[in-house]
Simulated scan of single mutants.
Amino acid sequence: MVLLGTIVNGVAIIVGTFLGKILHRIPEKIKTLVLQSIGLAVAILGIQMGLKSEQFLIVILSLLFGSIIGELFDLDGKLNALGLWIEKRIGTKEEGGIAKGFVSATLIFVIGAMAIIGALDSGLRGDHQVLYTKSLLDGFTSIVLTTTFGIGVLFSAFPVMIYQGFIALFATQIEKWVPAPIMDGFITEMTAAGGIMILAIGLNMLEITRVRVANMLPAILVVAVIVTGQYFYQQLFL
């Protein structure tokens, strides 16, 4: 089922919101330890995915050029600026209200490498592992956000499911138009490149590094370009 990971993600946010309403105060030590535990699990998942590459040079080149493109366009900065702008606009009207909780949670759950990579994995490979891990992250995060913003966090589950579901469904259609060798190569190397991004997310959660993962997202497009170019080169000259 292509949308299973997306549905689980949405349900996790809803359940987390209700738990957040029940658990008004969570000790800081528990929050920290749980986030660190999840961060370690995310890092291991990233390593596992990264090791699936069959042509690691493609992964290196895609991350190199993808990161340059991301930095030139400053995707991370623009996304953060958008979030701050929306929060200011909402906050002036309804400080701490439902609208602010909805917007804040949606930005956190939608903007990120795991949402895109996980949805692509669901659509291309039928593998929901990344979205299951994201569900765990989002579920706990929604508990914490609900204690701050209230029930508005609940409604963020719907744009998350629409956004990720659209990517997953779109990915299933790619196979109808793209030759199997290109698709197989793209899935393998995209998984590895995405794994390295997920490893970076885990390291960020552990506060070991501060990698601007959003700026690495164009690497997925670069993987597609390199794999496609390699395929046609082999067809024409080898």
Rank of each mutant, 00 (worst) to 15 (best):
L3E: 11
T6Q: 13
V8T: 13
N9A: 13
G10R: 06
V11E: 07
V11T: 10
I14L: 14
I14G: 06
T17R: 00
G20C: 05
H24V: 12
R25S: 14
I26K: 06
I26Y: 06
E28L: 11
I30P: 02
T32D: 15
V34N: 05
Q36C: 02
Q36G: 14
I38Q: 00
G39Q: 05
L40G: 07
A43G: 07
I44G: 02
I44P: 01
I47A: 13
G50L: 00
G50N: 09
L51S: 10
E54N: 14
F56V: 11
L57M: 13
L63F: 06
L63C: 03
G66H: 04
G66P: 01
I68M: 13
E71M: 05
E71Y: 03
E71F: 02
F73A: 14
F73I: 13
D74I: 04
G77K: 03
G77I: 02
K78E: 14
L82S: 08
G83A: 11
L84W: 03
W85M: 11
I86L: 15
E87F: 08
E87D: 14
K88C: 05
K88M: 14
T92W: 08
E95G: 04
G101S: 10
F102I: 05
V103T: 15
T106S: 15
I108Y: 09
F109E: 03
V110N: 01
G112Q: 02
A115K: 00
I117S: 01
S122P: 03
L124T: 05
L124A: 12
H128A: 09
T133Q: 13
T133I: 12
K134N: 07
L136V: 14
I143V: 14
I143D: 10
V144Q: 11
V144H: 01
L145K: 09
T148K: 15
G150F: 04
V153D: 00
M161Y: 04
F170T: 10
T172D: 06
K176Q: 12
W177I: 15
P181D: 04
P181L: 08
M183F: 07
F186M: 15
F186N: 02
F186S: 11
I187D: 12
E189N: 10
T191P: 10
G195Y: 04
G195P: 05
M197C: 03
I198E: 01
L199S: 00
L199E: 02
I201A: 05
N204D: 04
N204E: 01
E207T: 06
E207L: 08
R210K: 15
L217S: 04
A219K: 03
V222I: 15
V222Q: 00
V222L: 11
V223K: 06
A224C: 11
I226G: 10
V227I: 15
T228Q: 13
G229P: 09
Y231V: 09
Q235L: 13
L236H: 05
L236P: 00
F237E: 06
L238R: 12
